[in-house]
Each structure stands twice: as C-alpha cells, then as structure tokens.
Write a protein that binds this DNA or RNA. Structure first.
Length: 422
RNA sequence: GGAGGGAUGGCAGAGCGGUAAUGCAACGGAUUGCUAAUCCGUCAACGUGUAACAGCGUUGCGGGGGUUCGAGUCCCCCUCCCUCCGCCA
C-alpha cells in the first residue's frame, strides 16, 4: 500500500516503478483524484467548524435561558452541505484507497527490469550438479518405483495435484522440516511458531494476497482462508502493534502446510509433486527496522542457503526481475535447487523484502528511540525451505543406480540413522 | 449451539447529550555536582500552512447508518474479543 504523500512528492518515481511492473502510469490520475478529495475535505472542515461554533453558542444561550431559535435555524441550513460533503469524502477516499490497495510494490532501483523470469539475474551458484553413470530419473519415477509415493491413492481421496507419501518417504519429509526448524531456531535466532492455518480476510489483505489474488486461495464456507504460506500469519503477528525500536528485529519461523488453488497454473508441472494444492513449507519472517531490512534480507537468504548447503543440494541464487517479483515485494532472491531428473534448476526458496508495503496494510509500526511519532516497520519473508521440493531435490540428487536414493549425512540423525532408501 | 459481558490514545482506565478525565510509559525542555525526584510541554490521523518548525482547523472512543443545534454517551445493523453452560480431540 502506498503513502499518498509519497506519491505526491515523487510522481515520476512512482510511475517508473509501475512501468517496471509493466503497468501504465497512474500518478497523474491518482493525484488529480487526491486533490479533489482534499479540496472537498477542506471545504467540509470549514462547514464543520462553523457548525461547531454555532452549536457551542446554542449551548451557551440555552444554559443562560436565552432564546436560541435563530441560531438553530442558521445551523440547520448547514445540514445539507454537511451531509453532501461527507458523502463525497467517503466516495472519493474510498475509491482512492481501493485503487492503491491493488497496486504492486515498487521494485528497488537496482532490481533488473523485465517482464518475467527471462530477465532474472543469477547472482551466485553453489555446488556442482552430480554426475551419474546412468540416466537420472525424476522424483516421481523414483518414488513410485519404491512404492512410497502414491499419486493414485491421493487422487482417489482428493483428486489431482495431491500426493500420498508412505513409510520412509513420509518420515523423511517430516525429518526435513525438523532439520530446517532446528537450524533456524538454534543457529539463526528465529522463534518457532505454531500458528493457525485458517485466517480472516483482513489478515490476507495485510500481506497483499487480497483483494487482488483471491482466486489463488482456498476459502471455507464460513469465510476463512486457508494459509497459502505461513508468511501470511507470521507477518500479521505484528498487525496493529506499536513495537519498541529495541525489540527489532523480530524473527519468526513456522512449519505449516500451505494450500494453493493455483487457478492460473493449470497445465504446468502436472506430473509429480512439484506443484500441488497442498505442501509443507518452513517459513521465515523478519520484522525489521527500515534501515536494516536490506541486510536482513541477505541474512535471511543466507539462512535458506545454509539448509541447501548442509543437505548438499547444488543451487543458484537469482535476483528476480521486476516482472517476476511478487505483488508485495520490492526485492526478491529465489534459490533454485538443481533437479537432475529435469536437468534444470527449480525454485525451492524465495526470500523477499517487502519494505513498509505490508506494514502499512497491517498497521505495523515501531516507536523510534529518538524523536516522536511512529514509523512503519519493514517486513521480510522467505522459504527456508519448501519441504516438498526439498524432498524432491534430495531424491533426485542422491539417487542410486538400483532405484533408491541415499540420505544426506546432515539429515541422517533425523531419520534414526538411516543412510539410504532402497 | 445457548446465555451474558465487553471494544476509549503505546498501556491502564473514567466519562451515561454540551470542548475526550486521570495514571503509567515514552519523548522534548526546565531544574540539578551526578543519579533520582520535581515542574512544564509533547505524546493519533488528516487538512491547511511552513524552506522546515510553529500556528490554525477537522476528525478520532471496534466498523457502518440514524436521531439531535450538538453523540464516546440515545436508536438500528455489522464485526471481533471475553466469561459461563452444552458438545467435542
């Protein structure tokens, strides 16, 4: 959500940001409407001022037992103008707020400008893709052959884009989550949260998932939304709060299922468990001082990279271009894990700095040590990591000639010392 | 599901038709050998104004309507929270 005054002061920057998002300029239109709303507000306030003054006189006159009929008649004449002014105020500022709530965040100045993932920039690469003396398989081939990954069973109960994991594979999925949580909480100062999985509309609005992306969400019959990501609930932990500056940064992590209707993604990645209606994810959220959010994003990205490194999954870090970034982000790094079965890198984490964009929508502020008033915090979120996709990456990168796969050393303590699945 | 109670500034908490008490915290200043204490002010948003302050004004008592010259206060609708009962992992 934008600050109207910022747009007033920086109309060119505002339009440039929209252009980077592939949108037409809007500053002129918005500012014209803003000016109209303000003119009306000023006029309304003058009328209110007069009404208040007259009402005070009426009160004074009546308490002295004097006749106030002429004053009452005078103030009565203001009523029509007053109501009209209030009506216009509601209309104009409501419409303006609606327009602003559907505009994506401004990319940071050095974010590459482009329409889609083609213009993303690789900033790092870690690990060498493994070399196999056989044709590497995709995860679902491995999983199905082992009898531990069952798409048919899932479709019987829930239809397409679900999976049933059995036995050791189910355990490894659980172990991966525990492994990730331990690192974030024990080494990186994140506080583990076990949050609600159903949230209300205002929560989804706060992170920017509503009003524009309702079709991506599952909604219950009594108007709850299922979490599409724990970001939604972790970030909203500071909704309507005024934090002390000394409390910052706050860091939260949670392991939750994520539910996505992915209405627009029909036909993409239909095989396997890469893109499903439900998956587990360990999420990180930081609530940061505005001056520190850039650093915090690097730190968070490093937390996610650490997981990949410990698991020995080769990956590359991409700085997303303006057109590929999410609605609320001003800067995003995607981590793409190497998938030998697909012979390419696939997104396994996404870490974003949203600046004050979400904080404005949620009313999340802090009180600076010096000076008065409050400022909006910055919010960041990142996957650390998507558990389902991490499982896929482990299976494919550690696959063995006989059809099974090895278990990364770092993970073995979490699966009772198992070293391989055959 | 049933019955009650509630929502007021960063927090606590009055106010029951006539300018939003008071306390705590915070910030600025005064005072002070230092700390503490004390005193004064500030302490929400918006509009207007300013180079920036100041100043002036409006709104703000969960949200939206209404009554009234005037609404935190009266009426109607909605949302959320709490307590008790019932059911339940």
């Amino acid at each position: 959500m934008y600050d109207l005054r910022w747009i007033r002061d920086n109309p060119e920057a505002f339009d440039a940001g929209l252009a980077a998002r592939g949108m037409a300029p809007l500053a002129k239109d918005i500012l014209a409407r803003d000016e109209k709303a303000r003119a009306n507000r000023t006029q309304l306030q003058e009328i209110q001022n007069r009404r208040n003054a007259l009402s005070k006189q009426i009160g004074a006159a009546k308490s002295k037992g004097e006749d106030a009929e002429s004053l009452i008649a005078e103030v009565g004449q203001l009523k029509g103008a007053l109501q009209a002014g209030e009506e216009v105020e509601r209309e104009l500022s409501g419409a303006l707020r609606e327009t602003l709530s559907e505009l994506p965040n401004q990319p940071e100045p050095d974010v590459p400008v482009g329409q889609d993932e083609e213009t993303n920039v690789e900033v790092r690469r870690h690990g060498e893709p493994p070399v196999f003396d056989f044709e590497p398989k995709q995860h679902f081939e491995i999983g199905e052959a082992l009898g531990l990954m069952d798409f048919e069973a899932a479709s019987k109960v829930s239809g397409a884009r679900f999976v049933v994991l059995r036995g050791a594979l189910a355990r490894i999925e659980r172990a991966l989550a525990a492994f990730m949580l331990d690192i974030h909480t024990l080494e990186f100062d994140y506080t583990e949260i076990s949050p609600p999985l159903l949230v209300r509309e205002h929560t989804a609005f706060g992170t920017g998932n509503l009003p524009k992306f309702e079709e991506d969400l599952f909604k219950t019959t009594d108007d709850f939304y299922l979490l599409p990501t724990a970001e939604m609930v972790l970030t909203n932990l500071v909704r309507d709060e005024v934090l002390a500056e000394a409390e910052l940064p706050l860091r939260f992590t949670a392991h939750t299922p994520c539910f996505r209707s992915e209405a627009g993604a029909a036909g993409r990645d239909t095989r396997g468990m890469l893109r499903q209606h439900q998956f587990y994810k360990v999420e990180m959220v930081s609530i940061s001082h505005p001056d520190q959010s850039g650093e915090e994003l690097d730190r968070m990205t490093n937390c996610a990279e650490t997981i990949l490194q410990r698991l020995g999954i080769p990956y590359r870090a991409m700085l997303l271009s303006s057109g590929d970034m999410g609605f609320s982000a001003k800067r995003t790094y995607d981590l793409e894990g190497w998938m030998p079965g697909q012979d390419c890198y696939r997104e396994i984490s996404s870490c974003s700095n949203c600046g004050d964009f979400q904080a404005r929508r949620m009313g999340a502020r802090f009180k600076p040590n010096q000076g008065k008033g409050t400022n909006f915090v910055h919010t960041l979120n990142g996957s650390g990591l998507a558990v389902g996709r991490t499982l896929i990456a482990v299976m494919e990168n550690y696959q063995l000639a006989g059809g099974g796969f090895a278990i990364p050393e770092a993970l073995q303590p979490y699966v009772g010392g198992m070293t391989r699945i055959a």
